[in-house]
Amino acid sequence: MLRTYLPAIVFVGLGTLVGAIFTMMNSWFGPKRKRTPTTFKQDPYECGLPSEVQQGFRFGISFYLIAMLFILFDIEVVFLYPVAVQLRAFGTFALIETIVFIALLVVAFVYVWRRGALEWR
């Protein structure tokens, strides 16, 4: 069974190889400068007002909210897959289970929507 995954490993290996070649090729073919570059060259791209942005930015709470909602609904999707495959085999029982499962999530979804978590601020 796991033997069917062998090509996947080959693909990942080849993908890493190509990525490594792309990442390293400037070191091989690119110009090599002896002088250390000036600070202006080393600065990140800037446009408009200059700002001293370094590591550790802060970002909006909305992104956290979306991430939490994602976990909720992505797990819904993952749980639906096994039921979906075996839906014919289990017939009405699986159907009712699916409906109950989705209904519970719809309640959560309506709550989230009404609380305004889906509004982008």
Partner: peptide
């Protein structure tokens, strides 16, 4: 391919790579 290998000074080298 013939560009200079370069990263800004604010970047985290190995993650950037």
């Amino acid at each position: 391919a013939t560009k200079e290998q370069f990263r800004p000074r604010t970047s985290i080298g190995w993650l950037f790579a």
